[in-house]
Design a protein around this nucleic acid. Structure first.
Lengths: 268, 268
DNA sequence: CATCGAAATATGTATATGCAAATCTCGCAT
DNA sequence: ATGCGAGATTTGCATATACATATTTCGATG
């Protein structure tokens, strides 16, 4: 498979959202408004050809100068399009050799897990929340370590059940470091999930995750309305802000009813 | 917390690898060789300040012009540094408002799962592979759909057991589309894992994943040397190349002994 | 006092230009 | 034939410049 296609469409009709974090139309130096930036149109055109199989992995694609000519832009603009595609893992570039469609080999898998609320509401299911437990106590040593707390220091412990269409969907076991988030002591978690509350009140800079499978213990089984011993998908998350652990949470999902599915997201 | 630091070090000493796909030194227009590009030095300097807590989430950071002045570069170079940091999710930018350290809110979780071999050998464990089953057959309809095969079309079916330090670690159930990879019919999978073999022989452009928990059925339990009914972490992967499904595989891990752990990796 | 509008500011996009580095090709000398 | 060196090509980095756009600030006006 070695084919070189010389001409891309000058007016790319297909639309791809810019994945930059910024919003709005963006600066449009001498560009009719409402249209995508030139470099985005070039990226979209290339992506389309790859997606539709016209250019397969390893195939060469037009170089910067050629793209610049075909699209009527400067070389820097074409350069930016190719550079970003390379960073997104869509293409590979070498000097003199040119650019080619990436051969995805030996990469780590990257899983993107959508947020729970979005997952539930996105499916059109009715979302419901139940606060099962709330205490401010000295955590057991295992939890204390994860929160990186001093011995004897108290923390806020919450247990909540999330329901989708009146069926248990997720059991949340959460500890909040009150030194990092004193306001949490006053917050009302009967209507707003602690995850959402924390998102709004405490910025964070880092998080760690663990995924595992375990058999439901009797308490978990009762809460999730499944049989004891049934497989449960466990996700643990620890969130930090400025070198301090803000919160640690363990989420349990009925393994039979919950699946994390995702398409490959290149490293970028 | 509202503090404005005016001066960043002109000669950033800390080193960050450019995450672009390209290697080598890169073009160095009027730049002493061996040093990072100017925009990378700026990025590194900013990241360092954030990492060390000097600038916390939500804090403003110097603007393009200020950085350009402090680092003695053009505005475009400073712009590129900030743009990339924004895309990586490290900072947030708004017109007129300026740039500030990102408040990580509402983002999807991104999990990075290292490849199995690397995981096993990285732990210093002895890796072993056993081919339990190999047949070329017409797959059951459930598998046929996943492979997007025509009815009656045959596919290569493999079952393998991966061991770490002589203990079952992963049970692999794989189907390979022989239309996409005819050479697979001749390959020897007793010594090389099909995953690795495919990586070397077939480029791929896309993959989908599913993660779930399930109870071990008797056959799985026997293979993994666990009790029937014990929780098993399941990962399914479907790989495509040019709109064709190359392979579909299901991996099962003993839930008690295997955990996927990862630090947060921003989208970028 | 409230509100609308102009100025100021910071980011976003784009051009034209120059040089550096990597690497493939080809011709020439041994 | 083999190997070495001189282009040629393609990507990478950076500057100077210009204009567009979003948003805040501030002042004028009713």
């Amino acid at each position: 498979m070695y084919m070189q296609i010389s001409h891309l469409s000058i007016e790319g009709t297909d639309v791809a959202e810019p994945d930059g974090r910024t919003q709005g139309d963006g600066g449009t130096a001498r560009r009719p408004r409402g249209r995508l930036p030139a470099y985005e149109r070039i990226k979209a055109a290339i992506r389309t050809r790859i997606r539709e199989g016209e250019w397969g992995p390893g195939d060469p694609i037009p170089g910067e100068s050629e793209l610049a000519r075909d699209f009527g832009v400067s070389r820097l603009t074409a350069h930016r399009a190719l550079r970003e595609l390379a960073r997104e893992g869509v293409i590979e570039r070498r000097r003199r050799r040119g650019s080619r469609v990436a051969v995805r080999t030996g990469r780590d898998i990257v899983l993107e897990i959508p947020r729970i609320e979005r997952l539930v509401t996105g499916l059109g299911a009715a979302y419901e929340l139940r606060l099962l437990w709330r205490r401010t106590t000295v955590p057991p040593s295992e939890i204390r370590e994860r929160l990186e707390l001093a011995p004897g220091q108290r923390a806020l412990h919450l247990v909540l059940l999330h329901l989708a269409d009146r069926r248990p969907f997720q059991l949340e076991d959460r500890w909040i470091n009150l030194l990092a988030v004193p306001e949490a002591a006053q917050a009302d978690f009967t209507t707003i999930a602690p995850g959402s509350w924390l998102l709004e009140h405490v910025p964070w800079s880092e998080a760690e995750h663990v995924i595992a499978a375990e058999n439901a213990d009797p308490a978990t089984a009762r809460a999730l309305d499944i049989e004891p011993g049934e497989a449960v998908l466990v996700i643990e998350r620890r969130t930090r802000n400025r070198n301090r652990v803000v919160t640690w949470a363990r989420f349990r999902h009925p393994g039979s009813s919950y699946r994390l599915a995702t398409a490959f997201a290149p490293r970028a």
